[in-house]
Amino acid sequence: MARRRSAGEISYALIIGGLATLALVVLIGPVLVVLATSFTDSRSIRFPPQGFSFRWYLLLMDEVRSRFIHVAAGNTLQVAALSAGLATLGGTAAALALAEAKGRWARVADAFFMSPLVLPGLAFGLAALMYFTLLGFRPSLELLVCGHLIVVVPFVLRTVGASLSQRDPALLDASASLGASRLYTFRRVTLPLIAPGIAAGGFLAFMASVDQVPVSLFLSSARTDMLPIRMWGMMESTLDVRVAAVSGTLIFVAFVLMLVMERFTGLTKRMRG
């Protein structure tokens, strides 16, 4: 027979359960609302959406009328691919060096490399704008890559660092005592072990670059437009319903990519780690 529950237990279950449910609604609700809104048939954004149609998605695919969105999306993908690629190379190398170096300086270097994660991105964005302009550079995608590189590197450092710390040191000793060189050990032992961490870090860096606002806000221009900045413009002015269609597309792509990455790299565990 179940024992009678005390007032404390009942209030705990009710309040904690209630707040957790509210948290779930708050987390998922907006995503569903955006998806529903993107299929509206009306010219205004209201909820519940009026009618069902793909008209905003069709308009979004229109080569001529949605050209500015396509250009911005292309720029965003280019910058994300380049900055995430460079961040993965440099970040993995740095994570390997930091994992070997012990002591105070390694901790200082680690904190330094991770600092863009908590530093106000807006201050850095403005600093980058002044720096590049005063050095005489004109706005370009290359400058955006340099700025994004700094803010996405911490994602690679964190996931690769975590997988390096889980590597069994006995494996390295075993490889060395069997006569393998350090390079060979790296290629055949370390690299396969940390590959999922590198992939997860590269993916997170890519997504962070696609989502980047504070740096793009200052470094992008009319010629080097970026998707989040363009969407901000569309929301500020007339609240173009295409924003909903762009959002729906981004949610869908993120969802699929995340399922794939979860399957191959156990992404969510690594983000938690």
């Binding site: 987390l27 907006p30 995503v31 955006v34 696609v210 959002s247």
Partner: peptide, 14 residues
């Protein structure tokens, strides 16, 4: 984690 991978601008729009 899902909201983290849907752009900040999308979440703002929502």
């Amino acid at each position: 984690v899902m909201p983290l991978l849907t752009s900040v601008v999308v979440r703002t729009f929502a």
